[in-house]
């Protein structure tokens, strides 16, 4: 419970800080929302030329997009500013202070800042989901989907977090390492599309790698599938994919923890 108290204080202090810089907060809020809306407009345009992409109809895909927005806004609000800062903390020796605190260092480093303005997209995602679901042909909302959807969104957030913190932690070994962290943006790009599009001689290896090696394809696909398509009923692989997503979440977290601990053990600190 004390960890929750610490986290709430982080969240509170971050909000006070964000409110001090009101204009900055508003600009961030507006620009990230505008970016998501432009993305949405782009897919609306694409669907003027086709009825479905890899088995996803327009409104099903809108559910997919809103899932992407949920996951991304959560990652951006809670983890991204911290992972970004880690490499700087290593370079300047600021990590010293984190190591002195009688609290889990990974928890402290991963959550000490909350970027509240990123939650704007969370609200947009709610609206988009509410708009798209009733427009899917013959859609019936199942109670199971209502329960599982948020759980798998959180699982997806945790997978992306694990990849992010593991990449950011390498800066502890390498002294300074913004580029490996940037790599996160390259690979997580792949998670933003339905896994069905990764097909054929070039697509299948990608699908395989991004499912079983770096499991980022299950991040959006599993919750979006649960919500938009009766993944558990129709698709014979559906339930297994969901089970796999749970295993992938646990595995990713364990792996990132291992990397983080190993990195901390060899921390050199900056000279002062």
């Amino acid at each position: 419970m004390s960890y929750l108290g610490v986290f709430l204080t982080f969240a509170r202090n971050s909000l006070i800080r964000d409110m001090t810089f009101r204009a900055n907060f508003l600009i961030e809020f507006i620009s990230s929302t505008a970016w998501m809306l432009m993305n949405l407009g782009f897919y609306a345009l694409v669907y003027r030329y086709t009825g479905n992409i890899a088995g996803w109809s327009k409104y099903e895909f809108f559910v997919f997009i809103s899932t992407t927005m949920f996951v991304n806004s959560l990652v951006q609000a809670f983890f991204m500013p911290n992972a970004q800062e880690l490499s700087e903390m290593v370079r300047t020796g600021g990590l010293d202070f984190a190591l002195l605190k009688p609290i889990d260092t990974q928890f402290l480093v991963s959550l000490h800042r909350v970027n509240w303005s990123s939650l704007g997209n969370f609200v947009i995602a709610c609206l988009l989901l509410g708009y798209a679901l009733p427009r899917i042909e013959g859609y019936q909302l199942s109670p199971l989907a209502v329960v599982l959807y948020p759980l798998f969104v959180v699982a997806g957030v945790l997978i992306l977090y694990s990849v992010m913190i593991a990449l950011a932690a390498t800066s502890i070994w390498l002294g300074r390492n913004q580029s490996l962290y940037d790599f996160w943006f390259y690979i997580t790009n792949f998670s933003r599309y339905p896994m069905e599009i990764y097909d054929g001689a070039y697509g299948l290896p990608l699908r395989w790698a991004f499912t079983f090696i770096v499991p980022i394809l299950v991040v959006i696909n599993v919750p979006a599938g649960i919500m938009a398509k009766p993944i558990l009923a129709d698709n014979p692989y559906g339930p297994w994919l969901a089970v796999f997503a749970v295993a992938a979440t646990v595995g990713s977290l364990a792996f990132s923890r291992w990397v983080f601990q190993r990195a901390l053990a060899s921390y050199r600190s900056a000279s002062s």
Binding site: S2, G5, V6, T9, F10, N13, K101, P102, I103, L108
Partner: peptide, 8 residues
């Protein structure tokens, strides 16, 4: 206040 929480 944050220190208070962290150090319990």
């Amino acid at each position: 206040k944050l220190h208070q929480k962290i150090y319990r």
